Computed example of a mutant assay.
Amino acid sequence: MEGRIGPGLEVSMITLIVIGVIVVVLLFIIVGAYNRLVALSQKADQSFADIDVQLTQRRDLIPNLVETVKGYAGHERQTLDSVTQARAAAAGATSVQDKVHSENMLTAALGRLFAVAEAYPDLKANTNFLELQREISDIENKLAAARRFFNNAIAEFNAARQQFPTVAVAGLFGFGSNREFFDVGEGDRAAMNAAPPSVKF
């Protein structure tokens, strides 16, 4: 009969349609997984940028703090120098790991500086010192919140990267490894505990 498709051709067309549907579904899965990883990576980057803003604001206050303390406790040279050096190291850090380490060292140095200030009643009563102390304390609180948000974003990204089908896509598009948390390591924790890092009296 004319116009009739043979059984072999029918099977071939059905096979092609099935293959086409499978390819389209796979593309949707790959695109969806890729877009999810990109969105989570952007969220983590934005969270880290928020931390960076707070860290920069804290570093900007330190020269005034050092100068104020120097006016009352100039002979505490070693403590003042350690704060200045820690600030310079923190400003030069680029990777997350380097920033974590250098900022923890800066926090420890600030803790020692505020501990020294305890011995100088006139310094503790200085209006400029009190205002700087209040601002740094406020930034520390914002930093704690920003770190929590960043670490949550990193945990979400790392978990998504290891789940199926995203894990199959991650390596293909440069998402092959976990991202690092903004966390205090054992060495940094020991340095920070050498003196109370709190800026509250």
Rank of each mutant, 00 (worst) to 15 (best):
V167Y: 07
Q162K: 15
R179Y: 09
F173N: 07
A170S: 10
S177D: 13
N128I: 11
L113S: 01
L123M: 04
K124C: 12
D138T: 12
A144H: 13
P121T: 10
A115E: 13
F164D: 04
E135S: 12
T166M: 06
Q162A: 15
L130E: 03
Y120A: 14
A117F: 04
N128V: 12
V169H: 03
A155G: 11
N152L: 02
A168R: 12
A119Y: 14
A144Q: 15
E131Q: 14
R161Q: 14
A170K: 04
E156G: 02
Y120R: 13
A144P: 13
K124E: 14
F173H: 10
A144Y: 07
N158H: 07
N128S: 11
R112W: 12
L123H: 11
T127Y: 07
D122M: 02
I154P: 02
A119G: 12
A155S: 14
L123D: 04
F149M: 09
T127R: 02
A146P: 00
R148N: 09
A125P: 03
P165G: 04
V167G: 10
Q162P: 02
E140F: 08
A146Q: 00
N151T: 09
L130Y: 01
A125S: 11
V169C: 10
A160V: 07
A153T: 00
F164W: 15
F175G: 09
L132I: 05
A159Y: 11
V116K: 07
L110S: 05
V116D: 14
I154Y: 02
Y120I: 07
R147H: 05
V169M: 10
I136V: 12
A115S: 13
L110D: 05
A119W: 08
P165A: 06
F157L: 06
F114K: 01
Q162V: 08
I154N: 06
G111E: 09
F114R: 07
R148L: 05
T166E: 05
G171D: 06
S137F: 12
N151S: 02
T127A: 12
R148A: 10
N151R: 02
I139V: 10
R134N: 12
N178R: 09
F129I: 13
N158T: 05
Q163C: 04
I136A: 12
L130Q: 09
E131S: 15
N141V: 06
Y120F: 15
T166D: 01
N152E: 05
N126Y: 06
N126G: 04
D122L: 01
Y120K: 11
A168L: 15
R147K: 11
F175P: 00
F114T: 04
G174P: 00
V116W: 11
E140Q: 10
S177F: 02
R112C: 04
G171F: 05
Q133L: 05
P121A: 14
F157W: 01
G171M: 03
K124A: 14
E140W: 03
E131N: 15
I139M: 04
L132P: 00
R134T: 09
E156M: 06
A170D: 11
E118W: 06
R112G: 14
N141Q: 15
A155H: 08
L143P: 03
Q163I: 05
R148T: 11
A117V: 10
E135V: 13
Q163P: 03
K124T: 08
E118N: 08
K124N: 15
A159S: 07
E131V: 13
T127N: 14
N158S: 08
A153R: 02
A145D: 11
I139H: 06
F114V: 10
G171H: 07
N152P: 04
A155Y: 07
S177T: 13
N178W: 01
